[in-house]
């Protein structure tokens, strides 16, 4: 860390809206550690209802790749089949305005290998991924299912956080509509 860099580490946040849809990248938070990152993620990204789970991953644990397929080579491939493997999570973005969505897991000896494996085995030929992320599964900190009620339940009962809850909104519309009518009448 340099003198100028007083920021806490950054964590990418992945949110699952319902149990039957994949986790999706919603943005990032800064936090001193993973546990606080998970809490910050909850407060920043679960203000509105519809959340079944959260993952946070240190941004530095993610290897990103876009464009051409990397080739296995250099130091990482030396030693060949003797290297031990571990599980990597794979996220892929399919269009420029989209986000990274969880695609699945691969077993690989290194992040680079994981990327190659992900692109060859998890791509959708009809909608090829344009930016790929992999991170070791051990780097992911996940919300606990038995904490879902306290983490995500309360947002459902908080309609007052939505602008539509307030009459001020409809009153403002009425005032604007009246102004428009008055202006129309004046110009006739």
């Amino acid at each position: 860390m340099t003198v100028d860099d007083t920021q806490w580490p950054r964590f990418q946040v992945f949110k699952q809206d319902r149990l039957d849809v994949p986790f999706e990248n919603v943005g990032s938070v800064h936090a001193p550690d993973a546990e606080m990152a998970l809490q910050n993620a909850r407060d920043v990204f679960v203000r509105r209802p519809d959340c079944a789970g959260l993952w946070v991953v240190p941004a530095e644990a993610i290897l990103e790749e876009s464009g051409r397929v990397p080739t296995a080579g250099g130091e990482e491939s030396q030693g060949g089949g003797t290297a031990s493997t571990e599980a990597f999570l794979v996220f892929v973005k399919q269009d420029q305005s989209g986000t990274h969505i969880y695609r699945g897991q691969v077993e690989a000896p290194s992040p680079t290998h994981a990327l190659i494996l992900a692109r060859s085995s998890l791509d959708d030929p009809d909608r090829p991924g344009i930016v790929w992320w992999v991170c070791p599964a051990r780097a992911v900190v996940r919300s606990e299912p038995d904490e879902a009620e306290s983490m995500f339940g309360p947002a459902r009962g908080k309609l007052y956080r939505q602008p539509g809850y307030y009459r001020a909104d409809s009153m403002m519309r009425a005032i604007k509509a009246r102004r428009r009518r008055e202006q129309d009448e004046a110009s006739e």
Partner: peptide
Amino acid sequence: PILEEDIAFTNIALD
């Protein structure tokens, strides 16, 4: 002290 805490503590205040 930081943006994330600002949101978190504001959330607690609202609760």
